Simulated assay, not measured.
Amino acid sequence: MMLFASNSMLLSTIIMLTYASLGVSRPTSNFVDPDFPITEDPEEMRAEALKRLLEVFGMEDPPHTKGLHKQPPQYMLDLYNTVADVDGVTKDPDLLEGNTVRSFFNKIHSEQIQFLFNLSTVAKTEKVLTAELHLFKLRQKATTPALHRHHFCQVNVYQVMDNRKASHKLLSSRLVPIHTTGWEVFSITHAVRAWTADENSNHGLLVTVRTLGGTNLDPNLIRFASGRDHHESKQPMLVLFTDDGRRAASLENSLKDQNKEGDALNIPPSLKVNNSRTARSLENTEDEHLPCQRYPLYVDFEEIGWSGWIISPRGYNAHHCKGSCPFPLGQNMRPTNHATVQSIIHALKLTKGIETPCCVPDKLFSVNLLYFDDDENVVLKQYDDMVAGSCGCH
């Protein structure tokens, strides 16, 4: 099902998708979400529905981009293609450390090899797992007889504590081949954790290059690309691997739900609601006789006006589950033990008011978004429980 902004199908589908992802059922006359306005105004309903969809993606407002973006760093594009398929669906949940990767560009230009990165877009609740400084080592402009005697240089990365040189704190130090070119990566996790805890402590980084004997090398001999003088694909970059806590909360809720209901299958609660009844109330009932199965539900980011800040994917197929769960439930309907018992009770009419089990997702996959934030940094974020991988009766 396509999300079309130009007609009422968009509103119905977004409302279905957002309520399912937020883990609540569609409001009835007796249980209405007080924060969701009941209105017949299509524009007001659309705005509220899109607001709820943003909440699913962990945002209050869409990023305010200027329209003319920098080219996304090749590192971020390669990382996205490593963890996600062409539709943005996660290939392997263990490939990414945490659920968020942020890239930042240098904000200052100095005669020294000095960098400053603005981390204001990192939420206080995000846990910094790993932070890396990426520098592109250029070919030498010139060489000297003395330099030919050396094959390695020592590159040191310091955290600038204040303007006093003696207060600089060594973060990383290692040997780098002198006569090669390419990316060099340095771990600076401790400094970034300090900066995110206290943004006033962020005075930047200082990089020095010395011979193995400790002598400073001429910057013209050993050079790293800067954002000012070199192609943007080679500019210095800070890369943060973080976790915003949403994955841990999802797993915790899943375990609580599993213990509470005693189901044989682990079904995350975000879609473990009466979604089949929601679908039935919004669609024709002529397909109810069909068995429970998965159908397409395509979310088109361009149609809902998000293509200006989302780099990849252009949209994704969330899929949805629809169909009946008649007695007796066959194994092809992937029923839980609870659903089997409920089906028997309903068929024998042993208890009044017991309905048939519902056709809902029993396997959920995560989706990755690569997008620009408010400061036009590039962010890779993984969202759990976004795609119905298969359907079953529960």
Rank of each mutant, 00 (worst) to 15 (best):
E126R: 01
T351H: 15
H320Q: 07
R247V: 04
S201A: 03
F241C: 02
P72C: 04
R223K: 09
K165N: 12
D263S: 08
H231C: 06
Q331F: 00
S29P: 14
L3G: 10
R334D: 10
V157T: 02
L133R: 03
R52Q: 03
A123T: 10
H134F: 00
D373H: 06
V367Q: 08
K70E: 14
I38H: 07
S6K: 14
L212F: 09
E232N: 10
T356G: 05
N275I: 15
E288T: 08
D218T: 01
K352F: 12
L133Q: 00
D85V: 03
G23W: 09
G213L: 09
I354F: 07
D41T: 02
S270H: 11
A264F: 13
K272Y: 04
V86A: 05
I311Q: 13
E288P: 00
T144H: 10
K66D: 00
F36D: 15
A131Y: 01
I14V: 13
L170N: 07
A5V: 08
T82S: 11
R294S: 05
M59Q: 14
R280Y: 09
H231R: 02
Y383N: 11
N106Y: 01
K260S: 05
G23A: 06
L53T: 05
F241T: 02
G353W: 14
K66E: 00
K363H: 12
L350K: 07
V367W: 05
F36K: 07
G214N: 09
H151W: 12
R139L: 06
L205H: 02
I267C: 13
P42G: 01
V207N: 12
S270N: 11
F57G: 12
L206W: 05
A248S: 13
I304M: 08
T340I: 08
T125F: 07
V83W: 06
H179S: 12
V128R: 01
Y295K: 08
S281A: 05
D92L: 03
D87A: 10
F105E: 09
N274Y: 09
L251W: 10
V157F: 02
D94N: 15
I14N: 06
H190K: 07
F365T: 04
C359H: 01
T278P: 00
Y19A: 01
P236Q: 11
S250V: 10
L265Y: 10
T143N: 08
Q293E: 00
E252P: 00
Q382A: 03
I354Y: 03
D198N: 11
Y295H: 14
R52P: 07
V387L: 02
G353M: 09
A197K: 01
